[in-house]
Structures are given as C-alpha cells and as structure tokens.
Amino acid sequence: MIRFARAVRGVHHVTALLMLVCLVTAAMLYVPALAEAVGRRHLVRTIHVLAGFGLPVPALLGWASRAFREDVRRLDRFSPDDWRWLRGRDRRATVGGRGIHPVGKFNAGQKLNAAFVAGAILVMLGTGWILAFPHPWPDTFRTGATFVHDWLTLAVFAVILGHLWYALRDPGALSGMFIGRVTPEWAARHHPAWLDETAAAGTRGMAGPDQPDPSSKGNPGRSGELTAPAGNTEEGKDDLSPRRS
C-alpha cells in the first residue's frame, strides 16, 4: 500500500540532504578539532549559509502538493490517543501482529519530531540570518543569536540521530520513505488505525481519510474519543489556518 507520495518523499529527501550539509559544515565550523583540520572558513561558511537558507524551500514548494498538505495536517493533529501512546510503556506492543494503540498514519513521536524539525528550521533561519547579516543588529542580539544557534544545534544533532536510529532499524519505514510503499503487515503493526482507514476509504471510494471507521477499532471507547470531539475541534482550528489553501 502507498505510504508517501512522490512529492512528500521529495520534500523529505531534499530537506534531509540540506540538513545533512548544514550539520556537516556546522561541525567543520564549530568543533575545534574539525575546524583546525578543515580550515577554509569562508568556503565552508558559504556552503553552510546557502544550505541553511535553502532548508525551508522544499517544504514551501511541497505545499503545492495535496498529498504533502494532507500529511502536514495529520502531523499537526494531536489526539488523546497520542498522549496515551507517548506516556505508555507498551508503545510497540502488538497482539496478533497488530499494534494495540490506535496509531494513525503518524505516531506521536513522529508528530513531535516533525514539529521540532519545523520549529528548529525556523529558529535556525532567524538566528542564522542575524549571524549572516549582522550589520543591523546590536551586539547583544548577535551574542543572543549565537547562543541560540549553538545550543539548538546540539539539540538538532540529538533529535536527528534519534530519528535515524529509529528509521534505520525499521526496514518497513525505510521502504515507506524511499520507495513510497509499505506492506499491510507493517502498517498493521505500526499504524493500525491508518491501515483501517485506508482500507475503509478503499471500499467506500471517497471517505475522508481522517474519519477512521469506528467498526474496525478493537476498543470502542477509545475510538469514540478519537473520532468525534477531537476531530471536530481540530477541523475548526484548521479552517482558521492562514496557510490553508
């Protein structure tokens, strides 16, 4: 079954590549031993700044794709089940090859990761702007921007290492991101609610992807919480979004 459309994968890959360039050049500018080994500060700095300013571009271009907007909307949406998933020690537990939590297309960790990366890109862009064009800014702001840029770099390193750790241990997830397709078995194990809604949409032909079929839920109490109230409020919020096309 199709997990990620080509546009979504494209946004991911280009963003990942730019992020990798940023992190590698950051290490060359920032870690003393590497800075001494590499030198060429002006060249490394230029590459770093260009890659950094390029970071938001793929997501902005991706906005033209409906599939990408749809995935962003799903990433933005937190349900009570997501909090339960985050708190639970049984996040990965399965019964008969099926995850026990009603995880949709994205689990709560993926949602937090996406939000963190988006926020980090914006903050790095803003502070990087101050560092790259320091003229209009007073010294305290430059020092403050250096402070934020430096410490957030460490956080970004940690989060991306975690992201790679989870992804590289999961061939199914890699297949979803690099080929675009996953097996129903993988979906049942990691994203059972998404599997159900995709199957339901397939049979109904046009059902909204955010209305999971309650009949397919193992736990009716939970699915009730998930669909009715959360869905309504989030829909209302979405209509206020200025970015919505």
Partner: peptide, 23 residues
Amino acid sequence: MGRRVVLGMVGLGAVGVAVGARV
C-alpha cells in the same frame, strides 16, 4: 498541537536571542 510546538520554539528562540547574551 504540532503548530503549538513550532510557535513555542520560535518564541523560545526569540527570548533566547534577547537574553542569550546574559546567559
């Protein structure tokens, strides 16, 4: 929610720029 995380980070970043020199 994701949006709140993003906005929260941007807000924290701005605060960091303002007070980072002292910290």
